[in-house]
Amino acid sequence: MKKEHEILIQKKVDGQLSTTEEDKFDKLISQSAEANKYYNEIKKVDELLISDATRAKTIDNTHSIMNSIGKSNVQHTKTKTRLFTPRLMKYAAILIVGVFMGAAFSYTFFNSAEIDNTMLSGTMVSKTNEQVLFEDEQTKIVLHTIDVAEIKIALLRVETNELINCEITNTGHEHMQIVALKNKANLSENAEINNQLTITGNTIFQVIFNSQETPELLFVRENKIIARKKIE
């Protein structure tokens, strides 16, 4: 059966046909036994899905969820005193240095194909590396790693026509920061929530880690892993 006929039938099942298309559909069904069979089968699948959805098991885990939230380290309160504990001040200082260095580095990285390491502070940056993690006609992923004092920065440039999912494993939320750089960056709204990012278009972003961690970056396109890289 022609693809356009399949689409016409699928649209009919979803109640999406215009008047003209309804006429086409009626004509098709009256003339083609194959189309008639396809329509009836797709309709049965639709009905089965609808009826299965209505018999879903009821759950109520409210108590358990609220208990977990009560034990969570994150509490949304007006009290700000915790923000000034020495430990958090230390992390904040490390992250600020990281963002500053990353931004300076990305400026160079963004504006020229060749990285000029002399643009970076030689006293703080102990090591930089560039690596093409993946390249084909649709997607190119380039990684720069920077070691700075107590932190590591992974600076990534992704040029892609397809949707890319990036997962960052083996790292704690509290030590990690994901920052979209430049206006071209287009990260998904839930970056940092689940250590996962959805990337589209030409994107530059940096991920800042505690140097004691060895996180792994995993890039997935169309459900296939296209690149995997451990930051050591």
Binding site: N61, S64, I65, S68, I69, S72, H76
Partner: peptide, 12 residues
Amino acid sequence: TQDVFVKSYESL
């Protein structure tokens, strides 16, 4: 499901 709600709370 429980994890999703905790994550969403923490990332609110």
